[in-house]
Design a protein around this nucleic acid. Structure first.
Lengths: 247, 247
DNA sequence: ACGCCTATGCGAACACCGTACGCTAGGGTG
DNA sequence: CACCCTAGCGTACGGTGTTCGCATAGGCGT
């Protein structure tokens, strides 16, 4: 008789159901999903695995989350909540430091959750969760106070966000490849170097760069590369501010 | 007897096998994959569907491609081949136009293949296919000729690539959401506006921006936003060049 | 001309995925 | 007490990437 067994409610299940909590909630699900993603990466996130971690069946999640896609949107907005956007900091010409701090915080957030790299391109900034909108508003205020006129502040903001995300996503993708490979960064770079050697043989400029960076600390190089671009960027924005000021 | 039927070789199959081509090749597979992605998007790409389009069984592809992941790497490198990087253009102070042309070409490429947005974050720039390395070398030459010293040219290049990719990926994600929704851009924006209205009620700056852009042509706004950031960026790089020149 | 060898295609099968559906149990409300 | 509504779950379906072993056919050595 294939009709379902009565879904035998073990004492534990009954106890859990009884009281304590609703046992499952969108917040719990999203929080656990972030933990799972941090620990095991994007490929390990399935409704079944997430359900198991929550001591629940896979399909139970659908009572609180419409689909896996929606779950991912929620997860992305969740980590946007970790951003630290400086508030009113008095001096309006401190905008450079404030924006740099923002950028650094965004980069740190993505590197803390490297799986975000594979997911930001699908979600985009289009889906506006509460955290993202809140942080955007705060960040926009930075540019307003810096002196950008209304129609330009959001462009300036989008511009620096785009830079940070583009830069960091590529870092994160590299790091997650590194993690997948199971090698140390030294080993991987040596391997890449060997593989690339032939391809790069007649590409002198790339080769030059390769050699130049050979002995350096990769993590420091990444930090410096990020800072370099950010400085150029802020210089350009500052120049624009000056031009506006001189109208 | 469950052992396979002799896989009856229809006349057609025999004919096709006989001559013409090896019938399947990595190039054919990659090219068809790009076509499929352009026409039906990233979700429609499966080994089975791609095999069908090629008149082949799904598993036949594995003779020419190690895995779907590798296929995606190949596909990404394939479209990098579409980039147009200006070569020797005489005047070394034409670097601004050259880099801007590069950036525009990269943006156009991504917008031509919007699925790239969801894929660039997974592949990153880490996997260096022949096209990507070749184009990087050419682009690097631009910065060298502009006057950036060896250790800085690649940073400058990565910086502007990061900006372009970050900016365009977010555009592409938005556009693909638009396409999925099946609405016109006007309708979608009106819908978003209504949904966002309440959330944005007490976020005056975001609201201001929303209202300001209400009647404008979205496509032109995107172009202008991209150009705005790029100009700021190039200004910053130019300033750096000047500082270097004055050493 | 024959027979082997290797490269190529493919069908079946496996493990896993997202998710629709209908059932159950239990607490809250009349 | 009877009722309903909600949260959880077992089952099942269609689809996925990939493995494996078999069938085939062309090229090559003899």
């Amino acid at each position: 008789m294939p009709t379902g067994k009565p879904a035998v409610p073990s004492v534990w299940a009954r106890q859990r159901n009884k009281r304590e909590q609703p046992a499952l909630s969108q917040d719990r699900i999203v929080a656990e999903a972030v933990r799972l993603l941090d620990e095991e990466g994007i490929e390990a996130l399935s409704m079944r695995s997430l359900g198991t971690r929550l001591g629940a069946g896979a399909t139970s999640l659908y009572r609180h989350v419409a689909s896996k896609d929606e779950l991912i949107e929620l997860v992305v907005d969740e980590i946007y909540g970790e951003l630290e956007v400086p508030g009113e900091s008095g001096a309006p010409d401190a905008w450079r430091e404030s924006v740099a701090a923002c950028a650094g915080s965004l980069r740190a957030m993505i590197l803390r959750h490297p799986w975000a790299a594979s997911v930001l391109g699908q979600v985009g900034l289009a889906e506006l969760g509460p955290n993202l909108t809140r942080q955007s508003e705060r960040m926009l205020a930075l540019f307003h106070r810096a002196g950008f006129p209304a129609g330009e502040a959001d462009r300036a903001m989008n511009t620096v966000i785009a830079y940070v995300i583009g830069m960091t996503v590529s870092e994160a993708a590299y790091l997650s490849m590194l993690a997948r490979s199971g090698q140390s960064e030294q080993e991987l770079m040596e391997g890449l170097r060997r593989v690339a050697e032939e391809a790069v043989r007649d590409l002198p400029l790339l080769r030059e760069g390769y050699d130049e960076r050979a002995g350096e600390d990769p993590s420091r190089l990444r930090d410096e590369g990020f800072a370099y671009g950010l400085e150029r960027f802020l210089d350009g924005l500052q120049a624009r501010l000056d031009a506006l000021g001189a109208h």
